[in-house]
Design a protein around this nucleic acid. Sequence first.
DNA 1: CTGTTAGCGCATTCAT
DNA 2: ATGAATGCGCTAACAG
Lengths: 336, 336
Amino acid sequence: MDAPTPFKVATLHDVAREAGVSLITASRALSNPGMVAERTIARVHAAVQATGYIPNLLAGSLKSKRSLMVASLVPAISVAQFLPTVQALTESLEAAGYQLILGQTGYDHSREDALLNAMISRRADGIVVTGLIHSTAARSRLRQLGIPVVETWDLSDHPVDMLVGFSHTAVGRAIASYFRERGWQRVGIASGDDHRGALRRAGFEQAIGVEVPTAVVSAPSSLELGRQALTELLIKQPALQAVYCSSDSLAQGVLAEAQARGLKVPQDLAVCGFGNADFAAHTYPSLTTVHVDGAAIGRTAARLIVDRCQGNPVAEPIVDVGFRIIERRSTSSTAS
Amino acid sequence: MDAPTPFKVATLHDVAREAGVSLITASRALSNPGMVAERTIARVHAAVQATGYIPNLLAGSLKSKRSLMVASLVPAISVAQFLPTVQALTESLEAAGYQLILGQTGYDHSREDALLNAMISRRADGIVVTGLIHSTAARSRLRQLGIPVVETWDLSDHPVDMLVGFSHTAVGRAIASYFRERGWQRVGIASGDDHRGALRRAGFEQAIGVEVPTAVVSAPSSLELGRQALTELLIKQPALQAVYCSSDSLAQGVLAEAQARGLKVPQDLAVCGFGNADFAAHTYPSLTTVHVDGAAIGRTAARLIVDRCQGNPVAEPIVDVGFRIIERRSTSSTAS
DNA sequence: CTGTTAGCGCATTCAT
DNA sequence: ATGAATGCGCTAACAG
């Protein structure tokens, strides 16, 4: 930092000259060693050390038309729900030599469009989005370009390309069945106002069959909003028996508010969340919730993208990872 | 998807031909409109529409030596602690036209080195790392290349380049003072085994002045580990009065375990966390903790990187964002 | 197994 | 205000 370094970065050209081989031989020694003699490889590696060469992937990608980058679009990374997916996606991609470019859409469709364009501009080899892509312009552009795309965390019969998710409507129905089996009539919903939360809510209401008191909070949901939601629900239905919450954070807030009001869970009020957050098993009482294998979604999405990039046929472009209800103390005195 | 598209992507060349101007005029119309006549710009834009042109940033970056990408290295994005930083970083960078490439080091120094190389290979215009860079090889390489680097979430007199953080030792000392002021003698520590957690622990012990019962759990910490930690601490010191936890997740676990054991918080046991997680204000009882403005760290890091990229002088390359203790019910019956 | 040739798509010189 | 030439650093084709 003292003297402004001449800033002459070594290129492959310098490495080749240092090693006494041609440019392309140096290139192959580094990225395709099977085609080059052992001794030559060693000489090239020595030259790399000597020159301090660091390859320029920008140049390589321009020529090879493979950027080794995959874009991931999420509403906001602070949404705990999607973290295991992004984490697994990043890990799996890094293991395959790809890096992840992150974009935050902020639940805004126009931003999604702009970000998709930015990612196409960077020639991302694949794109993984959270939820479905709704803009028809974006859908047709992606299809036309033939870029591998994975939509996640939702289900559709007509994905842009590939899909890894599950049915939110089915989740809502499953929880409704669970409540009905236990004979709870006076049930309520605390739900975020996001698209997928609305699908679960619709499934729940449909399966319950009657009008259900509902408190809708604006995404992203939180413990605080859960406390507010229960307050609101108890006004609408003071004799509430059970609440379905569209996230574990909301459910945690409902638990806290119930505790503050002296309501025993589950005797006075049963609570079911969604997401199986890490804290769900350890709240007091422990929280019944719906588990979705978010990490599996990320891993599967990575595999699909990498397969398609490497030209391997993708046998199953639509993967339903399903879900399962995890029964704990917030709905059952006898659960674990 | 039926017929394999001929896949002829329009280039700037096609746009220029369509608009009846030269290549460079088309280029300027799009990225430097000040230099081009209004009418020409309109013609170029029409040509862009007609051809469906999407610029290739790879090519532009190769020539201009500005990739408009910034790398961010985090231990793991699932660590809630750093989420506001990554979120603010991504947002601020997107607003300035930069995209973020994410790398996960997994608390592994060799992975950090490999990832740094990958990011240099991609010619990231700047690099933001969580914590300090410890590898001397990486430090000198980054310095030699003159890449803007921001180390975050820690403090050092000799950063690689720039730094935005705070002193973890000071945090530990501040909590120790807080405990001593309240006359608590039999105190304990529940701490993760990560580097910065260790710094806080050291500061706490040093300020307390005597040996302190400690339960060390392996990062990343969680509610579950917090429950275990309190169990362990109560064996070492059954008459424990107060616990400092190196994260709010751990503290939440300590609260849960205390509740399960019938210990009243704060009367029987005072609890202090770290991080001011979103749930900390809403646990029952609410959690005293240390607030650090993670989003400010992200925004500041983005500003430093962008300033340096644009050649603006950086007045203050080391920014201490400080911290503050937020007193709540878990240490004070009279707090909010 | 190695080398020669020819670009990838764009932006930075210079010129006009 | 516009244009022509040049090359960023690398790799896909062919050749030898």
